[in-house]
Design a protein around this nucleic acid. Structure first.
Length: 269
DNA sequence: GCCTCATGTTGAT
DNA sequence: TCAACCTGAGGCT
């Protein structure tokens, strides 16, 4: 269940394991059998991520486009690859390594033009060096939608999911229900900068940690704790628990079909 | 072992 | 606004 930082990490992992070499490509489950056959044995030329979309480039100008959706995941291992267990949509393999893909929303082959079309409908990704935060600001500053909804809209901003959305708004003290057009440019600049830093850390760590050193349980004189999704966060999935900073109960509600979490006292800006 | 929920997106209503 | 997609983890029995 990944946000953009994990997809960038997967691009790197795939590049390290398979880049510059011929890859054996198969679909043990069968649902990607035809596509796998088309690129089987080809050289993997590159791997990149844009938001939550992963692209693996093969010689012959084919791009393997993968979106993990809510359930999808990769498993990497050293070769030789074992007999596939469960429903493996895609297996990449060489003599040294293998990777299994399960449960993706998307696993398809694209032409360069089709790949360009995917990029075109995505907003700037804080983890990409070519990202233009002003493109997102143009949409946000004209929108009556809430900041909370806009941050999750991949056309506006690519790669941010429910955890980073909740956490960046907490860290900047911004009330999630404010309309985008009510945001000041300086606030947007701060959101972008914080997202870029948090997501960069997340790519390295492979998990989402957002709690500043001065607010860790140790620094606050509280018992140590670990959030059940594997990272240390302020408000995400901490409904009704005391805010780590002020002690107020963390609020939650369903917002645009997703769970939103915030501290009503710390986030009044 | 069964049930619920989840770091997501699309397409129908 | 909601169902569908389709997988795994955690809580409960």
């Amino acid at each position: 269940m990944p946000e953009g930082h994990i997809i960038h990490r997967l691009a790197t992992e795939n590049r390290k394991a398979f880049g510059g070499r011929a890859a054996r490509v198969s679909s043990p489950q069968g649902r990607f059998a035809e596509g796998a056959k088309l690129i089987d044995g080809q050289l993997l030329a590159g791997a990149e991520a844009h938001g939550k979309h992963l692209f693996l480039g093969f010689e012959g100008e084919s791009w393997l486009h993968i979106h993990l959706g809510l359930y999808g995941g990769f498993t990497f291992g050293a070769g030789p690859a074992p007999t596939p267990v469960g429903l493996v949509r895609l297996r990449l393999e060489n003599d040294d390594a293998y990777a299994d893909l399960r449960g993706p929303t998307t696993c398809e082959l694209l032409t360069p033009a089709e790949k360009a079309a995917v990029h075109a409908r995505l907003g700037p990704d804080p983890l990409r060096p070519d990202a233009d935060p002003d493109a997102a600001w143009q949409r946000i500053s004209r929108s009556g939608s809430t900041v909370a909804a806009l941050l999750m809209d991949q056309k506006v901003l690519a790669g941010v999911g429910n955890v980073y959305r909740a956490e960046v708004l907490f860290r900047l003290g911004i009330a999630p229900h404010r309309p985008g057009r009510g945001l000041a440019r300086a606030e947007w600049d701060a959101i972008w900068a914080d997202l870029a830093a948090l997501m960069r850390d997340g790519t390295v760590a492979g998990r989402i940690d957002t709690v500043r050193p001065e607010h860790t349980p140790e620094a606050m004189g509280r018992p140590p704790r670990v959030d059940d999704h594997g990272g240390e966060v302020y408000v995400y999935r901490r409904a009704a628990l005391p805010c780590l900073v002020c002690g107020t109960g963390v609020r939650t509600e369903t917002h645009a079909a997703r769970n939103l979490f915030w501290c009503p006292r710390c986030q009044q800006r």
